[in-house]
Design a protein around this nucleic acid. Structure first.
Ligand SMILES: NC(=O)c1ccc[n+]([C@@H]2O[C@H](COP(=O)([O-])OP(=O)(O)OC[C@H]3O[C@@H](n4cnc5c(N)ncnc54)[C@H](O)[C@@H]3O)[C@@H](O)[C@H]2O)c1
Ligand SMILES: NC(=O)c1ccc[n+]([C@@H]2O[C@H](COP(=O)([O-])OP(=O)(O)OC[C@H]3O[C@@H](n4cnc5c(N)ncnc54)[C@H](O)[C@@H]3O)[C@@H](O)[C@H]2O)c1
Lengths: 231, 231
DNA sequence: TGCATATCGAGAAACTTATATCGAGATGTT
DNA sequence: AACATCTCGATATAAGTTTCTCGATATGCA
């Protein structure tokens, strides 16, 4: 009841909840295939091995209203989530970097079913420019800003080497992109208004590696020996 | 000061901090190349555009001790982080799924510099088995558990279609794997003791898509119309 | 029709993470 | 040598997230 009105407040879904929605969404789709017609949060929690309260909170956050003792009509919940996430509305995207990762992304059919369509690919490698990858002709990187501007593309994917990521991001911003999905392991800086999602494998690797070592019992600390001589 | 002794307590680094360490690590390496010999948390924060307090907290969490008015010797901090994350100790891994993503992962040289080496690849596709990808011969999936058992492999990477992810994970667990890095968009379930890291693109896509739509002003709510007729 | 119960929805509490503040000590400077 | 300043390290506060609890209500069953 702060300064927000109800409509604004409703949208404040935690990032963590947001990232869990696809898990529910996929499970619901599997249920639909199996012919199920209604579902409760408890069903979801059981099926996925998650905490029922958390599932309820997450679903509730999307603003859907359910019926006590009933739950939600399955197809309605699926549609609701698609709409909530924007997965039923096509958003165009451009890709920078037509290497092995870029090609894989370009060939990833399922993105289209989730509201994202890669419309064009850009690279700086002269050998790649002009080639077709999954039906798209690779264009010179320099064409990117103008393409974005002309087509009002919202989303830019970066799959270049880390060194180039910042400059490519700048180029996208210049063109008027609204959001960037960065697959290069680089900490890039963009204006406040730009939505940035980093898909940095090393974040995960650090977490995984640390936990693994800890579980193995290797003490990664108390080797303070080398410090003294550094000074 | 609960039930933990100091040694245990020290290790309780927040997941969020852990995932930020690679950002600092890379920036430090860049500084080292530039010939810098000492660094403060404030330097890091400035260089990366992050909050200085957060950087200090994160670095402090690793247990390194700095000197007031000095900071940390650069190479010492780099080495400290490598040691903390286990990136200076080789861990072997196996990969399931030799498709486009699997191949990309297999060819990703830099993993080795971060403590991970993919020792073997497994697939079920008869056409792929026996082929060499980036120098590794693709083996039948059935050989995986035995390979893991014999070589005491710690880490398993899943790059199969989502349908197969759970069964592949089970196979890895059977073989005695300790941690799983899952690239398939599937919610897999593993025993408590297994460390699981999901690299699910749809988590990010959901977040990105939602934020983008919200910024564009499209109200993803208040279409409660269709609900009534479902009942 | 009335009752037991599953389920939602909301609020409270506990926990985690992020941000702000401050004292102490080391450094470089005058 | 004294002082101003920078930086760590620790503590405190705030914000965010998860977990717990409970009442209300629609449903299925007796
Ligand atoms: N290969 C993997 O498994 C993998 C996984 C996760 C992340 N990544 C990251 O994704 C990025 C790409 O990886 P990759 O394996 O596809 O590398 P790659 O070398 O196969 O492809 C990089 C492509 O980017 C192009 N490029 C270089 N500079 C460019 C620029 N300024 N603008 C546009 N294009 C440019 C190159 O010509 C090349 O085609 C890297 O940052 C890598 O760290 C790779
Ligand atoms: N292509 C991408 O850009 C991309 C990005 C992120 C995540 N992913 C995910 O990664 C996974 C692999 O994607 P991909 O593009 O490499 O697919 P792909 O079809 O190119 O490769 C899948 C491989 O897995 C093998 N496989 C199938 N069942 C198997 C099993 N039970 N055990 C072992 N191997 C099995 C197949 O033979 C094939 O070689 C998918 O789940 C996909 O959703 C793909």
């Amino acid at each position: 009841m702060q300064s927000d009105d109800a409509k604004t407040r409703r949208r404040e879904i935690p990032e963590a909840s947001l990232r869990r929605l696809p898990i529910y969404y996929r499970f619901l789709q599997k249920m639909a295939v199996d012919g199920v017609v209604r579902v409760s949060c408890a069903d979801l929690a059981r099926g996925l091995g998650l905490d029922p309260t958390q599932v309820r909170k997450d679903i509730e956050m999307t603003g859907i209203v359910g019926k006590p003792r009933f739950g939600y009509p399955l197809v309605h919940l699926i549609g609701w989530l698609e709409n909530f996430l924007g997965w039923n509305r096509a958003k165009s995207a451009v890709l920078a970097g037509a290497g092995s990762l870029g090609s894989a992304l370009l060939g990833y059919e399922k993105f289209r079913k989730h509201g994202m369509e890669i419309m064009a690919v850009f690279d700086i490698d002269g050998a790649k420019i002009g080639q077709r990858i999954h039906g798209k002709e690779v264009q010179p990187l320099g064409f990117l800003p103008d393409f974005v501007r002309r087509t009002h593309t919202l989303l830019g994917l970066i799959a270049t080497p880390a060194d180039a990521a910042q400059s490519v991001a700048d180029l996208m911003v210049t063109g008027g992109i609204r959001a960037i999905w960065n697959f290069a392991p680089a900490h890039i800086r963009v204006p406040e208004r730009i939505i940035l999602q980093n898909e940095d494998l090393y974040h995960s690797l650090a977490s995984l590696s640390f936990k693994l070592e800890r579980q193995l019992g290797a003490p990664p600390f108390e080797s303070e020996i080398s410090y003294a001589k550094d000074h």
